[in-house]
């Protein structure tokens, strides 16, 4: 899923400062699952902002709404009336959702309330880890199902580097060394010899380096 984290309230307060009446728009998919932008977070943030602005002596009027997905126009459309009643929209979706909402409502300022952090997994309740860089050319078969592009701080194709110590990454001792995991996993599969092969430079053309990407499914275009 796309993992995000709500911005600090102070930063949000500064962003919404010019507006006296705005809509907090939640998103019921990825950011809901990671507790950043679903209905519950919309309600909590709205209370916090109301409280803070009352304290400042500049009360605001906040409307709350959560749609299923802010990255799909059919769902965004459900917010049209609420958007038109307000001066601005504070979107708690990922960056894609914020932009999709902004595109739909060209006359409303749309502000981001969430920092989109990564594509990851829920490792256990409350812990999300980055596991995919969305590079557009999946090589997980080469690396035993552990991605060095998203999980190695140096994106090494022929790792590990000299800083791998007791299975941990030198950049952060709380982070597992991806290359240690690759070696462990391939050892367990009896495929360690696979790593003896030289991995040539990666073709980054399929990544953002090649320019913003687009996926066209002609069979689904109406």
């Amino acid at each position: 899923m796309i993992v995000g984290e709500q911005k600090p309230v102070q930063e949000i307060l500064q962003m919404v400062a010019p507006h006296r009446k705005f809509l907090i728009l939640g998103c019921g998919t990825c950011v809901k699952t990671c507790f950043a932008g679903g209905e519950d977070e919309v309600a909590l943030l709205a209370s916090a902002l109301r409280l803070a602005s009352r304290k400042d002596g500049r009360p605001v009027e906040i409307e709350e709404l959560t749609v299923e997905r802010q990255c799909e126009d059919a769902f965004i459309a459900e917010a049209a009336e609420a958007v038109s009643r307000n001066e601005a929209v504070l979107s708690l979706a990922c960056g894609a959702g914020v932009q999709a909402v902004a595109r739909r409502f060209p006359r409303s300022p749309v502000l981001p309330g969430v920092n989109t952090t990564f594509l990851g997994v829920l490792e256990h309740q409350g812990l999300f880890t980055e596991e995919c860089a969305g590079c557009g050319d999946c090589q997980l078969a080469v690396f035993g199902g552990v991605c060095p592009f998203s999980r190695c701080a140096k994106k090494l194709l022929n790792g590990p580097c000299g800083g791998s110590q007791e299975g941990k990454c030198e950049v952060d001792p709380d982070t597992e060394c991806a290359w240690h995991l690759i070696i462990e996993r391939l050892s367990a599969l009896g495929r360690l010899d696979q790593l003896r092969a030289y991995v040539p430079p990666k073709n980054w053309q399929t990544s953002l380096s090649g320019g913003p990407r687009k996926l066209i499914r002609k069979d689904h275009v109406i």
Binding site: P160, G163, S164, E166, G167, H180, I183, L192
Partner: peptide, 17 residues
Amino acid sequence: ADPFEYRVIRLAKKIDA
């Protein structure tokens, strides 16, 4: 550095490269 056993494989790769 760790994993120790792998260090020689990596050395061999560097020589081949």
